Simulated scan of single mutants.
Amino acid sequence: MADISRRLGWRHLRSAPTAHVRHHRGGKLVHDGPGLSFWYRSLTAALSEVPVDDRELTMAFHARTADFQDVTVQATVTYRVGDPAVAAARLDFSVDPDTGIWRGTPLDQISTLLTEAAQQHALDTLARSPLADVLLTGVASVRERIEEGLATEPRLPATGLEVVAVRVVAIRPEPDVERALRTPAREQIQQEADRATYERRAVAVERERAIAENELASKIELARREEELVEQRGTNTRREAEESAAADAVHAEAEAARTVRLARAEAEAARQVGGARADAQAAWLRVHAEVDPATLHALGLTRLAENLPRIDSLTLSPDVLTGLLAKLGGAGGGQP
């Protein structure tokens, strides 16, 4: 909307660069162009302001597919006024010379024109396609059909309009149909998730089995090594026992030899001692055999006296003394 100011019955208009202003006075075009600024009188001026910038028109409408399913189409059409003079001649872009406000609703007229044209081509395309194809490739086909239809629409050039771009945002079925269509995909996704879970569990079980096998192999190897260790210990113990037995045998043989030698030496010594004693006894007997009997009696008494216990006192009865004297006397009377 243009800025209009008042000065002493005059009006000053200042428009934006994106607004094309046309000023007629007395049926003649006085000012024509975007971004103008000029003075005028409101009683004699006829003003039109046509926006020449790109504008977005968002639309949403219902359509029916070939299999009688309702869908909602959301699209956006970008347009601009390519010929402001034609647009001002075909649509009411006149503004109040005192306020600068449009007297009509030209943008609503343009929106209605574009919406109906785009909707007509979209409906024609969707009516020939089943719902599955529409949901799969419908966005691209509907966009292309709307672009082609608006490009060949005769009313747009006649109104001075140009279509810059067409975008189809979404084509969606009814909520219950959409949920029904999502169910197989969700089931498939769930199946894939379950399969991934089972595969992960299978991998985990396989890894646990491998770990168990490794542990079992380790235990078997450890048992084998323990068996070898026990066998080696038995061999070592047996070897030690054999060596100890051999050493004991050698020691016993040495002890036996030493004992034999000692016994032989003791026997030889005993034999020699016995021989010496026998010789001495024989010599003693020979000496006694050659000695006088009286001398032997004296020696016997001497030996007897040496071996008798100590006699502190001796009591002789008359009978003993008489017998002893008698024996001594008899012995003395027999000698010469």
Rank of each mutant, 00 (worst) to 15 (best):
M59K: 05
L222I: 01
T112D: 01
S317A: 04
D98I: 08
L114G: 00
L325D: 09
A280S: 10
R200W: 04
V320S: 13
A241V: 10
N236E: 14
A270R: 10
E221I: 11
D312L: 01
F38G: 06
I101A: 15
D279N: 11
G160R: 15
A263M: 13
V30Q: 14
E306I: 01
V95F: 07
E162Q: 04
G33A: 10
R200C: 00
R179W: 03
L229Q: 15
A254H: 02
E199K: 04
G33C: 14
S15C: 07
V177S: 01
E215R: 10
L161T: 07
H288N: 14
T159Q: 10
E162R: 13
V163H: 01
A193V: 12
E243S: 05
T58R: 06
D279I: 02
E162G: 07
N307H: 14
P184A: 07
E148Y: 04
G330I: 00
V86I: 12
A289E: 12
S42V: 06
A270S: 02
R201Q: 14
T125K: 13
A66R: 09
T322C: 00
L316M: 08
P309T: 05
G333Q: 05
T78A: 13
R11I: 03
H62L: 03
D70T: 12
V203H: 09
A263Y: 13
A46Y: 15
P175E: 11
D3E: 10
L324H: 00
L216H: 12
G160S: 12
L156W: 00
R261Q: 06
A249M: 11
R224W: 07
A85W: 11
T125N: 05
A180K: 03
E226H: 09
A170L: 02
E192C: 03
G274Y: 06
G300Y: 09
L131N: 03
T237H: 07
E144Q: 15
Q120M: 09
T125G: 01
S317P: 03
A2E: 04
P97D: 04
T322I: 00
E221G: 12
Q74S: 14
N307F: 08
A88V: 05
P84E: 11
R303E: 05
I4L: 01
T99I: 00
V203N: 05
A283R: 08
Q74K: 08
R14A: 10
P130F: 10
